[in-house]
Design a protein around this nucleic acid. Structure first.
Lengths: 157, 157
DNA sequence: TCTTGACCTGAAGTGAACTTGAGATCCGAT
DNA sequence: ATCGGATCTCAAGTTCACTTCAGGTCAAGA
């Protein structure tokens, strides 16, 4: 297998583990680009692999494609990004992760103190009053603006 | 305001911080129930507040409504769940959290060893080869409210 | 009684990140 | 030249957890 200068969408898919349909989707969203052959087929530069790697990793960390796109947009225009460029981008993940971990740990501690009572009391239970909703854990509540159920009355007993 | 025996959907919404539409949706999914007035309006028992609290918290932890429904289905039928019942249910969150935290910490450690090289090399980079994709961050955070693109870009100005 | 705000249903819309399908074209190997 | 797997586009479908809308009903206070 000769090392080609350009990669087909299938090549990129195989090497990055991302489906062709996803690659086309990324392109549609402006996250990656490709030149075309005379027959309109995509041909990717090898640096696209790194770009896709970045996208997948950031995605794993919970960033939206839009955020990732914004980040990618800060890469130097016109020249192939260097290792230093990527490093700069990646470093911001560190604090994001630390923050994410902190939120989960806080939640765990709250859980420990709540499990003892089995309460889930609406007004007292820390689990029920997350001021840090924003820090999120996954597919979180969509709308939730900071409504404070302060008038909440725990159930009897 | 007299303490009523039954709560309207508006009451439950205000006290739980969950929108009426969401409550109807939960009912549709079999997560909560309500009796009806002659005019077909919902009237909730007060214990529904606790049930909703459970749903929201579990949801925050990243469980799907289906999983939550399965959990709720294990509650004793016919009698009002006791504190012990809820405690039992909540305890399962503990290991879920521990697991979630472990995944993130591993990711952070990987990041530490990768950031030094700025590589994101497809074959070597640990971040790129997550054998535990499945375990991960839940069904995949859709959007994270506190993240602004600037979190990603870092202060690279 | 009237009025107004709360409530009802069922259907459709939302957004994120893709996938699937249909129908047509491309291109490398034989 | 031919064949079949790879690609193309565009539209529509999928999942999750809801929200929004349209068109109508209920219920409690003045």
């Amino acid at each position: 297998m000769v090392v080609e200068r350009y990669l087909t969408i299938g090549d990129v898919a195989r090497r990055s583990g991302v489906a062709p349909s996803a690659l086309r989707f990324y392109e549609e969203r402006g996250l990656i680009a490709a030149r075309r052959t005379g027959g309109n087929q995509r041909r990717y530069e090898r640096t696209t692999l790194r770009r896709v790697a970045f996208i997948r990793t950031a995605s794993r960390l919970g960033l939206t494609l839009e955020q990732i796109g914004d980040a990618l947009a800060t890469l130097p225009d016109g020249r192939t990004p260097t290792a230093a460029d990527w490093r700069l981008l990646s470093q911001s993940w560190r604090s994001l992760l630390d923050e994410r971990i902190a939120v989960l740990e806080r939640l765990r501690d709250d859980l420990d103190s709540c499990v003892g009572c089995g309460c889930l009391s609406l007004d007292r239970c820390a689990l029920q009053n997350p001021d840090d909703r924003a820090a999120a854990l996954g597919p979180g509540p969509r709308y939730l603006e900071g409504d404070s159920p302060s008038d909440v009355v725990g159930e009897g007993r």
